[in-house]
Every structure is written in structure tokens, then in C-alpha cells.
Design a protein around this nucleic acid. Sequence first.
RNA 1: GGAGAAAUACCCAAGUGGUGAAGGGGCUCCCCUGCUAAGGGAGUAGGGCGUGAAAGCGUCGCGAGGGUUCAAAUCCCUCUUUCUCCGCCA
Length: 434
Amino acid sequence: MLDIKLIKENPQEVIDRLLAKGKDAKQEISEILRLDGERRSLILETDTLKAEQNKVSKQIPVMKKAGEDTMPVMTRMKELADEIKNKDIKLREVDAAFREVMLTLPNLPDKDLAPGGKENNQELRTFGAPHVFAFEPQNHVDLCTNLGLIDYERGTKLSGSGFWIYRGMGARLEWALLNYFIETHLADGYELVMVPHMLGMETGYVSGQFPKFKEDVYWINTEEDERSLFMLPTAETALVSLHMNEILTEKELPRKYVAYTPCFRKEAGSHRADERGMVRGHQFNKVEMVQYTLPEKSDEAFEELVGKAEALVKGLGFHFRTVKLAAEDCSASMARTYDIEIHIPSMNGYKEVSSVSNARDYQARRGAIRFRREATGKPELVHTLNGSGLATSRILPAIVEQNQLKDGSVVVPECLRKYLGGIEVITKDMKNWQ
RNA sequence: GGAGAAAUACCCAAGUGGUGAAGGGGCUCCCCUGCUAAGGGAGUAGGGCGUGAAAGCGUCGCGAGGGUUCAAAUCCCUCUUUCUCCGCCA
């Protein structure tokens, strides 16, 4: 959510900056200003009436004690009560409408971002070079099937398209990745958190996925009276909501969290021919990093998160590039995002394995996540940041494709071997199912 | 899933319709004392919103949301959480 003060003081700046993000918010802004004005005048009116009500209310017992006639006062009080009730109803409506529009506005992009979409993304740095094969490389779907790492057919049998099953060495490799990531984060001082995989509605609003992506998650309860829960689309949703409606102390910032969860997404209509296999499914595994920081420290934290994600990919020995997203390519909640992309030979291109973002105070304002500034004693909004560290389901295809040998076996990245009992190469003989 | 009890500030806790939400502990400051302990005194209800240049003023806050009433911590309804008991269960 954006700061209403900024919108009031400088609506044109807000409109201009949102335009860089591809959002023409002229209409919303004028609607917000109108509703805000209406809201404030209603508050002023009701508060004035309530002040009178309170004042008179205190006199009533005094008058009664003195044996005075309270009838005339009572009549006035009844009027006041009715008037307050009506105005309160109106106020509630206006307030709800105001909030609704506010919630739909995306975050302002940082000023240094290139405007426009993907085509303006800027490559910041690369590491290593694309893998060159002395033979015709296979794609990860064939490799995983032949090696018995992934059971696509039975995944579909169990749950339909967009689901797969990790089996044998595949499951162990995926598990090894999770171990490698989590151990690294622990060494960096992050707290490991295991969160519920089903979340309440509010969490989606705090992280900014709702109202826009309400249709893109899986809902558990759809009946009106039941509290609706949804399957989390990313652990960010849970971790960012962890401290909603809290006032943290300045000392406990920054808070650094990491969580592993499966992520559930409908991904309706987004399947493409070049995204076979495990690149886009309805369920995938991800380790997510989240930080809560002081506002003045969030840039620093952002660089830390980017550095951590890069280090993980480096550790696996991959060629990757780090890309600074143009304003329009950043998601709605985020002020800035860097993607880390690795090369997947069969897709003849780069695929995102980590996306690191700074939401600044956008999510904090939606979730009333604050800290008490020691110097002033006043609460202020924190900054929230998140980054994948990393999405394992995208990494496994990259490993098998980049590390494949001519005979279709796959070399295990060195940093994972200790989790796999020292196995260095995954071969066909290790397949233990048909 | 069923029955009962509870939720008031940092902690404990009083408060069953009416003028500032008691009291205690803790904490902060001050006094006394050569120092410590003890003692004495004062302060300690946050946060949101509105208004204002500011000081301030107003309003809403007793788990949350509704309602009854001129007036609600107090009465009614719904929900959440915690505890006790029962049932079911990996």
C-alpha cells in the first residue's frame, strides 16, 4: 500500500512513477483523493457529534442525582445517537471503498529503474560461461526419465498435469539441494522457520498477492461461512505476514528468516512449448529468504540477499547472470527486483532461479508491521525484502542438463555429494523403478 | 467434533450499566543514606484516526467484529485464541 500522505501531497509524482511500471493510475488516484476527502469530513462530523454525546452523557448521572428532569436532554441524546449511527454506516462504506482502491495500487518502482518491460532489463553481471557440449545434449525431461529421477507419468496419474514425482536418486538430489541451501543460510545467521502450507486470507493481502492473484492460488474452503484458507504460492506470503500487526523493537532488526516449502500455483494458461518438464508446475519446492529491516538499512540487506543467491548458484558451479529488472517487470509489491538466471541448454536460454526484491514499506503498510525507533520512541514501518534461495525445482533440470555426460549419466555438483553418501555420478543403474 | 471456563497495560489483578478503567509488582526519575539494603515521593495505557504551524484538542481503544441502550469492560449475538474435561485420530 502506498502512503496516503504522499498521494495527497504529490499525486502527480505518484502517477508518473506508476506509469514507469506500466500502470496508468490517474483514475485511481483521483478516486482515492475524492474518497479520502469524503472520509475525513465524515470523521470530523462524527467526532464532533460523539464529543457532544460524551459530554452530555457524563452530566446525566449528575442531573439524576440532583433530582433534575432529564427528559429534554434524553431527547437530544436520542437524536445524536441516530445521527451518529447513520454517519458511521456511511463512513464505513467510504472507508471500505477507499481501502479497496488503495490495495489495488502497485508499489512505486525505485527511481533508478529503467522504465518499461522485460526488453529494458539490464544485465548487471555474469559468472562463468555457457556450457559447451562435445555431443548432442539431451533435455532434462529425457535425462530425468531415463535416469529414473522423475516419474512424470505417475505424477500425472495421481494429480493431473503439472505434477511430477521425485523418485530414488531424484528425490535424494532434490533433498540434497534443500540441505545445501538451508545449511548455507543457517551459517549466515538466518533463522529456519517451518510455516503452515495453508494460509488465511489476510496473509495474501499483506504480501500484496491479493486482490490481484486471488484466482491464481488454490483455495481450501470455498463455503461462505468457513474461514477460507489457501495453499501458499510461496513461503514469502507466510514469512512476510509473520509480524503483521506487531511493533518490533529496533534492536531485533534485522530479522532474517529462511523457510523451505512446496509452493502451489495454478499457473493457468501459462504453459509454453519450451517449458516442458519441471520448469512450471502446480507444485514446486523453494527455499525462501525474508528480511525485516530498518528503512535505512534495506538497500544493504538487498545486496546481501542478492549476494547470497549468487553464492548458492556459484557453489553449484553454474554459469549465471544477474539481471536488474525494468520497472514494469517487477511484481506489483516490489520497488526493485534482481533476477538470477541460469542457462538451461534445452531451452536455449536463461531461466530464473532466484528473484530478490525489496518491497520497502509497501508490504509493511499493508500488514501494519512496525518497529519502535529508539531515538523518537515512535513506531515506524519496517522494510521487507525477500528472495528465493533457491527454487530447487528449477535447479534440478539445470543440474542434469549442464552436468550430463555423453552416456546420459549426470555428474553431481561437488557441494551436494556429502548429502548423497559421496556419490559423484548418477547413472542409469541407480534407477530402481519401472 | 461436544461441554465448560477464561481473555483488562510489561506482569499479576479489581471492576455486573452512569462523572477521570482500582490496587500491586516491575520499570524510570527524585528524596533520604558515607556505600549497599531498606524506606519515602512522583511518573508509568499503548496505538490508530481526525484537526492544528506547533503545543494541544477531539475521537476510537478492556481478545476481534456486530448489536441493545441516552450511556457498555459490564447486557446480547458471532468469531478467534487459551485452559480443563469428553470424543476421534497419525
